[in-house]
């Protein structure tokens, strides 16, 4: 399968690989996917006092498209407010990375990871969880 240049670029030079301290109250962690499905994403956000995502990190087990989707997601998250982050849609990722139909699930996983991280942050800070992710 031919990958788009953007996928190859994120795969070769992934942005924001790493781990944030999940014990901190202002860090939200989302872990989605399953090893037997061949995709696991862990996405983390750190939120500052203004409610803005000041840092985002990921680690992903999966194909190039899964790695690229999560790398892109972390890039997009940085500097966004929580409300703006919630609005990120998987189809935005599909469009940006030119993902073929069989790889759309990678973008879905990335969106789920964003929502899971936000939820974790919200719950830690006494806020109600968002309604169930749409997927």
């Amino acid at each position: 399968m031919a990958y788009s240049e953007k996928v190859i670029d994120h795969y070769s030079n992934p942005k924001n690989v790493g781990t944030l301290d999940k014990s901190k109250n202002n860090v939200g962690t989302g872990l989605v996917g399953a090893p037997e499905c061949g995709d696991v994403m862990r996405l983390q956000i750190e939120v500052n006092e203004e409610g803005v995502i000041s840092d985002a990190k990921f680690k992903t087990f999966g194909c190039g498209s899964a790695i690229a989707s999560s790398s892109l997601a972390t890039e997009w998250l940085k500097g966004k407010s929580i409300d703006e982050a919630i609005a990120i849609d998987n189809m935005d990722i599909v469009e940006e990375l030119n993902l073929p139909p069989v790889k759309i699930h990678c973008s879905v996983l990335a969106e789920d990871a964003i929502k899971a991280a936000i939820n974790d942050y919200r719950v830690k800070n006494g806020l109600p969880a968002l309604e169930e992710a749409k997927h």
């Binding site: 992934p14 690989v17 781990t19 872990l31 989605v32 996917g33 399953a34 090893p35 037997e36 499905c37 696991v40 994403m41 862990r42 990921f58 680690k59 992903t60 087990f61 790695i67 699930h105 879905v108 996983l109 789920d112 997927h135």
Partner: peptide
């Protein structure tokens, strides 16, 4: 280095103990 599973393995977490969200 960018695999969450590798990190868990290195931390001694049993991957079978995690409830994975199956799609």
């Amino acid at each position: 280095e960018m695999s969450p599973l590798w990190e868990m393995f290195k931390e001694g977490i049993d991957l079978n103990s995690i409830e994975w969200a199956h799609h």
